[in-house]
Nucleic acid binder design. Structure first.
Lengths: 118, 118
DNA sequence: AGTTAATAACGAAAATATTCGTTATATTTG
DNA sequence: CAAATATAACGAATATTTTCGTTATTAACT
């Protein structure tokens, strides 16, 4: 899996969130509106990197994700945990609780939830 | 907090891991060895961005972190969780367990550990 | 003090990423 | 079919990042 640049990741997020989308629709959701060709370029790079595919051939292309959002997240996340916690997920979770991003009762709740759905 | 580029983050990691270090020492740990001036440049950029300071003025500069490793991790991590889990830490932890990066018993263990140290 | 060795500072060159003007192609409409 | 419109492809211009040659400064040694 290849790391995306900032601009690429931003566009990729929109494609993930919309499922299928044209360049014009992408621009519509943006503010301020960049030129059509700028976004078109980025999308083409994403296609070259294997992150999106397209269909339709007439009026416009519909771009859709080939790489799953959660998979890319996982890739980025692993890189981070490796770099900053030597890959130890346990340490990370401990850290999150200590930093009050997560409370013990939330942790308890999550655990119960997961046990229920097994 | 400013995002570091790939090259900058790599050097910053080494500075974090060593505490205090000179450019020459940085290069010694690298393989293959880049030119002294390449690393010197990156370190100077890190200083300009406020990530490191230096002391000593004679023979060589000793560079040391001004930004804490965990703080920068937190910044990067938050960005990721916001982008991929709409900021919900609970969802993230659930996801990690579902993906088998964490087991329920590990979660239980972490919780107990944390309760002990309160 | 003069010479040598180490190394930091500067700034230019090369690589990479980003933006966008222009052209070519396809589609719709009259 | 011709004209108007939408839009994708191309590639050039710009900006940013990365690498590194060169110069200048400092300190150690004689």
């Amino acid at each position: 899996m290849i790391k995306l640049t900032r601009a690429e990741e931003e566009i990729m997020q929109m494609i993930w969130d919309h499922g299928e989308i044209t360049v014009t629709q992408l621009i519509e959701t943006m503010n301020p509106k960049p030129p059509h060709s700028s976004i078109s370029s980025i999308v083409r790079i994403l296609e070259k990197k294997g992150f999106v595919g397209h269909k339709g051939h007439g009026r416009a292309y519909l771009y859709y994700p080939l790489v799953n959002k959660k998979d890319y997240f996982k890739f980025s996340f692993k890189r981070l945990v490796t770099m900053y916690f030597e890959g130890s997920m346990n340490e990370l979770v401990s850290y999150l609780v200590k930093e009050n991003d997560l409370t013990l009762s939330e942790l308890e709740e999550i655990k119960k939830d997961l046990e229920k759905n097994e």
